[in-house]
Nucleic acid binder design. Structure first.
Lengths: 347, 347
DNA sequence: TTGTATGCGTTATCAG
DNA sequence: CTGATAACGCATACAA
């Protein structure tokens, strides 16, 4: 046990320099595209690097330049259970698609809704310098993260609407109305007058805006809502709320839900009690899930271009970070997709 | 309320040392749990760090220790379109759950099925030292990644079964049979004798194993399959295959699909042609989607514990990386969940 | 056009 | 128990 196996020496910029007979600085210049190197030596350097299989150590670069070449994606959810992904996978793929080409990585983080823990996590993220910026989701009406991030100097882009009065880079995919207005008009046109709304928690910006848009849209057509419920996004909550709605004196003839999974759970419950959709009750969901199309009946819902949302947010963030990217075009508007779950009001 | 920001100067270990009147080395020792520091000074150091809001710079640590404190998650998909996430979100959350506590980050990567591009990406991942190890998915029958990773010396754990003859760390969540056998027996017990199987591409290990398990299970009950189709995991492909099956002379009375989304699309198509499920045809899916429960009829399917799969894989990888974690217990077996989409054979 | 010297923030080694 | 010091691999200002 005298001789230990010699640790494999890492190939560094110095090795490349030595092999091509130049200084490390020259190698660095070549690989940072800063020019000032004769094309002859550049070729030599590149060849040497290739032969040695050298790549810049991201850790060293990060330390030296204070740039991590990575962005964080912070998911934030009220749901503590294991089975809810607080964002459509398509958003993820949109982000990946954009950041990969300029060489950025995506560092994923999922936090619960404990603000204290969350703030700590953001602070660490900033202090650790693991990421150059973050993509945030799930803005709360009272959200301390915006000030915190500004204080930390950590660039960020919010996916979704900002709280009222807060100015912050974001991707606004939800213009006031956001498909709710369309949903209400759709149901109204079908003759529905008793409409219930079962949405997400009002502590969140997006569900709040949607709830308000619902009320506005109802007023616009001269209706009073039968019921407006705010709950979390789970199937169970949707069932409870639906159940409650159906025990009232003036039972609704139509439901608008804040998420497709809620709508599907609602339909399931209704059918379990002998109520047929859309014969007896119409249902409209939100945020077209891939499977909504294949339900029976197919779910009428509001579709958003999730992939595009992710791509836009990523582009926005990278532009803030100084990456030369063209400004993204306008976002597709959410649109109502009418399928079988909504129909004429009964009799 | 809170302290105002000090935007410029980074707070380093030296600042903490100065503030607590010790050397940087002492601070380092405390935060690496190496002991050798009197508890009095340790307390002082910790307080100073807290007051200054200091955290180790991950870049510096990575450089010094050659440890990135991050693992990569490599998703790999045949599907080039934007709308398919090649892994359940629950797996992601399982991984996150495990790696967060010991301070690891999750770097997400999605690659297409171009082997050349993929190999390059792995090489870069290894050379860049951005991650200490990777979690892989979607093993192909002919998969060059295993040799490549071994050559690169990049620790890795495969989520899913390895190709035949390949020895590689992996989380085997799919014992031969994998719920298919159960599915076949279930349908057989209901009186079905003409059963079709519509699964994933045979170039992938998991669908291949499943297809073989199907044939075995059919033999075991003395049946010949009406049809065995291998296709990609899309809804469209499922519809085509289903259509084809129903135009044959001996139309199947039951379908087993390789994925829930395929099953749902199949049901949708069948109902569109006037065929009722389960009255005329029974359907069994695979890989319980959250929404499968709320379909009408509810989808009979094979459920796996996705969160657990992710957690196990992450634990395995971290253990390989030297993190002191208890060996994970056994994986839950996939199990058949019988819902409304499967019933007695007609007439 | 190229080389030299320095420091990014941390941890490990060696003294004290 | 604690401190001084030398790397880790790279990019940059400054020289040549």
């Amino acid at each position: 046990m005298t001789e230990v196996s010699r640790p494999v020496k890492n190939v560094t910029i110095a090795d490349v320099a030595a092999r091509s007979g130049v200084s490390p600085a020259a190698v660095s210049r070549v690989f940072n595209g800063r020019g000032g190197i004769s094309s002859a030596t550049e070729a030599r350097i590149r060849r040497a690097a290739e032969e040695l299989g050298w790549t810049r150590s991201s850790a060293a670069v990060a330390l030296r330049k204070s740039k991590a070449m990575a962005v964080g994606l912070i998911l934030n959810t009220d749901i503590t259970g294991p089975d809810v992904m607080p964002m459509p996978p398509q958003v993820l793929m949109g982000i990946e698609h954009v950041i990969t080409k300029p060489g950025y990585g995506l560092l994923l983080h999922v936090f619960s809704n404990d603000p204290e823990e969350e703030n700590q996590a953001y602070k660490r993220l900033a202090a650790d310098k693991r990421v150059d910026g973050v993509l945030m989701t799930g803005a709360r009406v009272e959200d301390t993260r915006f000030r915190l991030l500004a204080e930390l100097g950590l660039p960020a882009v919010l996916i979704g609407p900002t709280p009222p009065g807060v100015v912050f880079p974001h991707v606004e995919y939800d213009p006031p109305g956001a498909g709710v207005e369309e949903s209400v008009r759709h149901l109204f046109a079908l003759g529905h007058r008793r409409i219930a709304y079962i949405g997400g928690p009002l502590s969140r910006v997006q569900p709040k805006i949607r709830a308000e848009a619902f009320l506005d849209a109802m007023s616009a057509v001269g209706l009073q809502p039968v019921l407006t419920v705010s709950t979390d996004y789970t199937a169970d909550a949707a069932v409870s709320a639906t159940k409650e709605a159906m025990t009232r004196a003036d039972t609704p003839t139509a439901f608008i839900y804040g998420a497709d999974v809620m709508a599907m759970a609602g339909i399931h419950y209704l059918r379990g009690t002998g109520i047929e959709v859309p014969r007896d009750v119409s249902v409209v969901g939100f945020d077209d899930q891939r499977l909504a199309e294949y339900m029976n009946p197919g779910l009428t819902t509001v579709a958003r271009n999730s992939m595009q949302r992710g791509a836009h947010a990523a582009t926005e963030l990278l532009r803030i970070l100084g990456v030369d990217l063209p400004e993204p075009g306008p976002l597709d508007a959410p649109r109502l997709i009418v399928r079988g779950s909504s129909g004429p009001v009964p009799e």
